[in-house]
């Protein structure tokens, strides 16, 4: 009696599963998708992902259930998508971090090889900001101070491989620069500490810093670009003081969507189309621009070229700064 009823309940499950699978072979997508966001709720990756997804859902005709799966600099979410069935129903919403997992020993999965870029949505432009009580007015003032008092100036960082870490490594190629790097939980907490005077400067994303700079609570010394940014009027590009930095640019964090490369090509194309439509939605474009981001909306080979160049520039900078745990040469990443 018990067994028969229990069995009945169990039997209902495979039946449903079987129906679902049969339907999946007809059209893609035929059910809701799952999107894993690499970073926590409220961060830049989260906001970008949640802003674009409704427009993509409209183009796709199905919902994308979004879930934050932070941890391990995003390696947890990447591994989860990597182990999931490559049927195109599991998406990875990520930032730039997976490209650095190899040199930081966080994961052996080769991101560019194993994942297919459905869309690299936008990239940010870093801005170097300080507490307005500090005497420095330009990037040169800051660099001079770091040379005069080595190991005294405190940078608010976000941990190894984070944007402040990479930018300060790039800065250190100017020579004779030593500073303290205090790692905070993210860009927001770092900027907060900066305003409290608990750190001296921070290379931060333009979106996160813009409003604080506009209110005069932080001073922008330079934008990490070869040209000034419209959202930071009057702030010179870093190359104004140090033209030799141009070889690193453009450089900054970026946000996008990936699936496993082994997802069937026709499904990948459907996703690419849907995200292409979603990323051109004026509402999304406006949000990105207001945050000082550059909309990219690239996919496939074009995205791969961008990713490979970014990875090469960044990993070799980290290697030169002595911050790479595994040499990029060992991972087969060419020199820039």
């Amino acid at each position: 009696m018990i067994t028969r009823r229990t069995f009945g309940a169990l039997a209902a499950v495979p039946l449903l599963g079987g129906l679902r699978q049969a339907a999946a072979q007809e059209a893609f997508p035929s059910r809701d998708l799952l999107g894993l966001i690499q970073w926590g709720a409220g961060g830049a990756t989260d906001v970008t992902s949640r802003a674009v997804t409704p427009h993509v859902e409209a183009a796709l005709g199905h919902k994308i259930v979004l879930q934050n799966r932070p941890g391990g600099s995003g390696a947890i979410a990447m591994t989860a998508v990597h182990t999931a069935n490559p049927d195109g129903y599991t998406l990875l919403y990520a930032a730039e971090n997976p490209l650095l997992y190899g040199v930081l020993n966080l994961s052996r999965i080769d991101f560019v090889q194993e994942f297919y870029a459905v869309n690299v949505l936008a990239r940010g432009v870093p801005v170097i900001v300080t507490n307005p009580d500090r005497p420095w007015r330009t990037l040169k003032d800051l660099v001079d101070e770091m040379r005069r008092n080595p190991g005294r100036v405190r940078m608010a960082g976000t941990g190894p491989g984070g944007q402040p870490h990479v930018i300060s490594s790039m800065l250190s190629t100017l020579g004779n620069i030593r500073h303290i790097s205090v790692p905070f939980d993210g860009e927001g907490p770092g900027l907060t500490a900066l305003q409290g005077g608990h750190a001296d400067f921070m290379p931060a994303g333009s979106g996160a810093a813009a409003e604080h700079v506009r209110a005069g609570r932080l001073r922008a010394l330079a934008v990490w670009n070869t040209e000034p940014l419209p959202s930071f009027p009057g702030v010179p590009p870093a190359t104004a003081d140090f033209p030799e930095l141009a070889r690193f640019m453009p450089w900054g964090s970026f946000y996008g969507v990936w699936v496993k490369r082994s997802v069937p090509a026709d499904r990948r194309d459907k996703l690419v189309q849907a995200f292409k439509t979603g990323a051109t939605n004026p509402q999304f474009v406006e949000l990105m621009q207001r945050n000082g981001n550059v909309v990219m909306n690239i996919s496939g080979d074009e995205a791969d070229r961008f990713l490979k160049r970014w990875q090469s520039v960044t990993t070799w900078t980290l290697q030169e700064a002595g911050a790479a745990r595994t040499s990029p040469a060992e991972l087969g990443i060419p020199r820039p």
């Binding site: 169990l10 449903l16 879930q67």
Partner: peptide, 12 residues
């Protein structure tokens, strides 16, 4: 809450 609960593979 759109929590994706395990759907099982044994009886598929």
């Amino acid at each position: 809450f759109t929590v994706v609960l395990p759907s099982g593979w044994l009886f598929r």
